[in-house]
Design a protein around this nucleic acid. Sequence first.
DNA 1: CCATCGTGACACTATTTAAT
DNA 2: ATTAAATAGTGTCACGATGG
Length: 203
Amino acid sequence: MTLALVRRQIETSEIKPGKATDKWKVFRDASEARELLGLQDRSLAVLDALLSFYPDNELRQDAQLIVFPSNTQLTLRAHGIAGATLRRHLALLVDAGLIVRKDSANGKRYARKDKAGAIDSAFGFDLSPLLLRVDELAMMAQQVVADRFALRRAKENLTICRRDVRKLISAAIEEGASGDWESIEAMYISLVGRIPRAPTLSA
DNA sequence: CCATCGTGACACTATTTAAT
DNA sequence: ATTAAATAGTGTCACGATGG
């Protein structure tokens, strides 16, 4: 439990009244932004399972945004992944600030209901950070899409450039143009060799 | 070819609830 | 009252895939 997480827990109680959003839209945005959030595909499967335990399609500020599935139920809905893995990805989701743990005294997850059967207080995972951060997540998703596009363009440009240089060196050697083309070719090879296989945009 | 990471099995702890 | 079962969480170790 870091201080940032504590702060997030406090912030979640300050969502604007009346705010509501489609939970699957948030999920899609979070999926797009998963690299920025430091999540993996499995984490998304866990988040998916978690959302599926929330009965309503709309995440609303005035509703009870807490799900309390047991780990076994969660495992079932998350395509049968192992318990340890499930817990790790839950921890990841908490770290990413997408959910907040609401622990009961014994760490179990359950809901206490009043006489009318309405949920009085629930222990489990609080989904309200998702609602709080919808806009932020949407922005991140757009950013990721834009970055991916920019990276593809950059890679295309690089490939074309590389081919041109290669052709120029070959032509120069064949036609005996003056200059130390062998060492230039060696420079070229070492430069190309430094390009990582899975480059980032900045690289 | 080796290092690293993700995953899963297992053991261990903690706490409440149920049973004796 | 004491004990056993249930359940959540964490840590560790081994294994396999993937990347450099």
